[in-house]
Amino acid sequence: MKRYKCLFFGTPEFVLPVLEFLYTGEDLLGVVTQPDKPKGRGLEKAPSPVKKWALSHGLKVFEPVKLKDPEFLKAIQSLSPELIVVFAYGKILPREVLEIPPEGCWNIHLSLLPKYRGASPVQWAIFNGEKETGVTIMLMDEGMDTGPILLQKSLEISAEDTSLTLLKNLSALSVIALREALSLWKKGDLKPTPQPDEGISYAPLIKKEDGFFTFEEPAERILRKLKAFSPWPGLYTHYHGKILKVHSAKSYPLTEDKPSGKILKISPEGILVATSQGAILLEEVQLEGKKRISAYEFALGQRLKAGDSLAL
């Protein structure tokens, strides 16, 4: 079967399985990724995972600040790519790029479009308690995840899934979906289908404040925040004017109403706290400026006891 001359646009680590698939299955000309960004305490500039992978495989790497840069456009036009595959690149492609490959620009989006268009579909699907998500291979246009659908694969979201575990599963499913879509496309058996007008929703970029919670929220909502927004921005609240991060927790039903934030029990298992609906067992926490410890150690250190309030 014909191998396409491809360019890959992507940035984070979870896209590497797709990059590896294109490297072995098609003629990969190079990658386009976000410029090096400051990382760590020293804020030294670090390459994206896609750049590191591409350089280790001897591939061309492009890091344009602006996708309409004439020099960048000239450079990728000279490569004559037949297909561009985009997966978590981080920017919307302009018309000048979309018009380059004759087979089009394909985007791999981690939701069942038109649900959860936007930058953070995995996190918002978990936060909203969705039971199912999936992968959409779409033909790109100038909108944000608005192009016609080529192929979709669905995936169940388990009760234990976090954004990290779901992302890993969706990354693996993306390879399967792209392989099938390319095979069908090359045979002429795949036709773009416009997205329906019904069922459109959005998944905006995650902000730091999305991880904040109070005990006035239901326990299940707090737990969904923990699963959705770890490792960043993480789940956190305020305690005596400082940030208290929650690294591990469980929700519990309550048979009677208790004031939100009231400590119901302290044990080696953790701190059981009432919420507006149900209770949450804090297992591992981290007070601002301190190391991560068990909630039981935190309770002992703060001299907390049942009946005290954490709603501070």
Rank of each mutant, 00 (worst) to 15 (best):
I76P: 01
Q77G: 14
Q77L: 15
Q77A: 15
L79Q: 12
L79A: 11
S80N: 14
S80M: 14
P81T: 11
E82L: 10
E82R: 12
E82F: 07
E82Y: 09
I84G: 06
I84W: 05
I84N: 04
I84D: 06
I84L: 09
V85S: 08
V85M: 08
V86R: 03
V86A: 07
F87L: 13
F87D: 15
F87M: 14
F87I: 13
F87G: 12
A88G: 15
A88K: 11
Y89F: 15
Y89E: 02
G90Q: 06
K91L: 01
K91N: 00
I92M: 05
L93T: 00
P94A: 01
P94H: 01
P94C: 01
P94N: 02
P94S: 01
R95A: 15
R95H: 15
R95T: 13
R95Q: 15
R95G: 07
E96I: 03
E96F: 02
V97D: 00
L98M: 04
L98H: 06
L98F: 03
L98N: 05
L98C: 03
E99R: 15
E99P: 06
I100G: 06
I100Y: 07
P101S: 02
P101M: 02
P101I: 02
P101K: 03
P101C: 00
P102M: 03
E103S: 13
E103K: 13
E103R: 15
W106G: 04
W106S: 03
N107F: 05
I108R: 00
I108W: 02
I108F: 00
H109A: 11
H109K: 10
L110D: 12
S111A: 14
L112W: 04
L113W: 03
L113A: 02
L113K: 01
K115S: 13
R117G: 05
G118A: 11
G118V: 11
A119I: 07
A119T: 09
A119E: 07
A119Y: 07
P121F: 05
P121A: 09
P121R: 10
V122A: 07
V122S: 10
V122C: 05
Q123E: 15
Q123N: 13
Q123Y: 08
Q123F: 08
W124C: 09
A125V: 09
A125W: 05
F127T: 12
N128M: 12
N128D: 12
N128I: 13
G129Q: 04
E130H: 11
K131G: 10
K131F: 10
K131E: 11
E132A: 10
G134K: 01
G134P: 04
V135C: 04
V135N: 04
V135Y: 03
M138K: 03
M140A: 03
D141L: 10
D141C: 12
E142D: 00
E142Q: 08
G143L: 11
